[in-house]
């Protein structure tokens, strides 16, 4: 059978197939769309025949392009719905966190140890903190937490400020989470840097206000959103470290393959981190700056910590492994 015979014989089926694929691509599959899988398999056989019979590139290229079109239509992924999202929050994310418990401890240590160390150092010697913050940093802290009354609430008096600050926190903090994750590609160094840097800087800020500012204004402001924001950052660091460790210690896989596998495992972590940081932005935007009794604000902060720790350790325990 020559090329021409082969084409003549199958021309009609190919035209029919092209019509079906085109309708699918336009998003208007007709009533006969159910025939597409069969037509697709037929076309695959035609392509295989054309390849093995050496019918030449003109024909194989054409069939190849058509098979790719159909393949992309038939193997499209279904959109994830709300149930999927709810399942992720209730089961997938906490399970992923517990699966990576070693990284959870490591990243927490990398963040909290310098935080506490720098904060405590302010009591003995303020020079460290001054060197870390710099004059601009100290001026900014004075502006926000320096005086007697609640300056943050004053800054938020104009209409719409809360919403603006919420959007600013989303853009800034979630962006930092994503960069912390991406930094993991540098063998984990980028993620470690972000965690360490933020630990030192925030520790310095807290230490400075404790020593030279109005600690109550500071701690009542940060208490509400701190658990979500800080742990969100730590979790983003975990996601980055997962990538970095895959490059450093790929085990028995080739490095590229280990990286792809690690990215799959890191995905729930970075999504969860973004959610936590988003939640923190809501709290920071609409709650933290409200003029309310200090006791209530500290209470909300403690409740946040308890809730998060309970969520991390208990949620999704009774359900089977969601990642399988």
């Amino acid at each position: 059978m020559t090329v021409g015979d082969f084409e003549d014989k199958n021309k009609q089926r190919w035209a029919e197939y092209e019509r079906l694929v085109e309708a699918m691509e336009r998003g208007r599959p007709g009533p006969e769309a159910g025939q597409l899988p069969r037509r697709f398999r037929e076309l695959c056989v035609d392509l295989a025949l054309a390849q093995s019979r050496m019918y030449g590139e003109r024909l194989t290229d054409r069939l190849n392009a058509q098979v790719i079109r159909g393949y992309e239509m038939l193997y499209r992924n279904r959109r994830a719905g709300w149930e999927k999202f709810a399942e992720f929050v209730a089961v997938g994310f906490p399970q992923a966190l517990r699966r990576e418990w070693r990284l959870l401890w490591l990243c927490n240590a990398v963040f909290w140890l310098p935080f506490v160390a720098v904060m405590v150092s302010a009591h003995f010697d303020l020079q460290w903190v001054q060197a870390i913050l710099g004059s601009d940093g100290m001026a900014a802290m004075d502006r926000m937490y320096g005086g007697r009354e609640d300056q943050i609430a004053h800054l938020r008096e104009e209409y719409g400020s809360n919403f603006m600050m919420f959007c600013h926190y989303i853009r800034n903090n979630v962006g930092i989470d994503f960069r912390t994750f991406a930094g993991g590609m540098a063998a984990g160094l980028g993620s470690l840097f972000f965690l360490l840097f933020n630990g030192i800087y925030m520790g310095a800020a807290a230490g400075y206000v404790n020593h030279a500012g109005n600690p109550e204004a500071f701690w009542t402001f940060v208490s509400g959103h701190a658990p979500f924001e800080l742990l969100g950052m730590v979790v983003a660091g975990m996601a980055g470290m997962r990538l970095g460790l895959a490059l450093l210690r790929p085990g028995r896989l080739p490095r590229v393959r280990a990286l792809a596998e690690a990215a799959r495992q890191a995905l729930p972590l970075i999504l969860g981190a973004a959610l936590m940081t988003g939640l923190a932005a809501v709290v920071e935007g609409f709650w933290s700056a409200q003029l309310l009794p200090s006791g209530l604000k500290y209470g909300v902060g403690i409740a946040g910590w308890v809730l998060l720790i309970a969520y991390f350790s208990l949620a999704g325990r009774r359900v089977g492994d969601a990642s399988r």
Partner: peptide, 20 residues
């Protein structure tokens, strides 16, 4: 009409979404 701060916030959010 609705206040510059709301608008600035919305633009920041749009920027974040377009970026990532």
């Amino acid at each position: 009409a609705i206040g510059q701060r709301l608008v600035t916030g919305a633009l920041l959010l749009a920027w974040f979404l377009l970026e990532w």
